[in-house]
Design a protein around this nucleic acid. Sequence first.
DNA 1: GCCAACGTTGGC
DNA 2: GCCAACGTTGGC
Length: 151
Amino acid sequence: MKHWLMKSEPDSYSIEDLERDGRTAWTGVRNYQARNLMRDEMSVGDPVLFYHSSSNPPGVVGVARVASEPYGDATALDPRSDYYDEKATEQEPRWYLVDVEFVERFPRTVPLAELKDTEGLEEMVVTQRSRLSVQPVRPEEFEIVRRLGRS
DNA sequence: GCCAACGTTGGC
DNA sequence: GCCAACGTTGGC
């Protein structure tokens, strides 16, 4: 089982939205590295740190779980969608996603600044200025962050 | 709103 | 296939 961190801007989709919906399709990823991680590396049941970006403060706000096998992102086929991609087709979807389901909302946000200050997270991708919206997380890192969030 | 980091595009 | 120009992300 692999562990992940997925970023979302809370103005577009927040942990509260996920708690309400229970489950959502992670549409709109248009970065190849992030796509490849979802398409090739994720399995149903993988734990996910849910991260709010472009918020104040940015940070991890809860836990989710991969809830489907990867499949083509239909928003790439919709000309009215912000995520439309004219090179995507039904046969060659080009962009992939997984469904994600709600697991828990932390009683507090674990801010990015705190992650950067926490022993054991020095090499965590999100503390290394990475813009990747889907990132692998080491199991030890996942545990450290969850403990912080629950405290 | 600024701007650094960095991914993508396209000319050659 | 290189690399300059350009666009986007996202923290601050």
